[in-house]
């Protein structure tokens, strides 16, 4: 199994498919690829913000968000060994379900609360703000 794992660093098709415990591990190459990609994907957003590379904050924010999403995918693939086949596809299904719930929870909260803010703020006077609990 050891030689098998080192020879075929890409696939796990050849061995131990019945045992959930030993399935789905990575290889040295996989971990290093994930690590180097993560370092690059971490360094770029920090550099963008700290060196103030892009002129508009909106563009920088978009770039930071995009790079975060890419890095999360890199971590999922290379460190958490996410694929559509592990545990008969159930981990992927649970992940997709969670992503849907997370998207609804975050975007829904932001949507509702920012609309509340815009609807509430003009009606509020300084005096009301001060007497607020």
């Amino acid at each position: 199994m050891t030689s098998h794992a080192t020879e075929h660093s890409h696939g796990h098709d050849g061995h131990d498919h019945g045992h959930g415990e030993t399935e789905g591990h990575g290889s040295f190459k996989g971990y290093m690829t994930g690590f180097i990609l993560s370092v690059i994907l971490t360094a770029i957003p920090f550099w963008l913000v700290m060196a103030d590379v892009l002129s508009s904050p909106t563009a920088t924010a978009l770039a930071v968000m995009l790079l975060a999403v890419v890095q999360i995918v890199v971590h999922m693939v290379y460190f958490l060994h996410m694929n559509s086949k592990s545990e008969g596809g159930w981990t992927m299904l649970a992940l997709i379900f969670t992503i849907v719930i997370v998207a609804i929870a975050i975007s829904g909260s932001l949507w509702v609360m920012y609309h509340l803010n815009t609807n509430m703020m003009p009606a509020m006077t300084e005096g009301m703000m001060k007497t607020m609990p």
Partner: peptide, 9 residues
């Protein structure tokens, strides 16, 4: 097949 990893996931 063991379901521990799925449960933990």
């Amino acid at each position: 097949p063991s379901s521990t990893m799925l449960g933990f996931w």
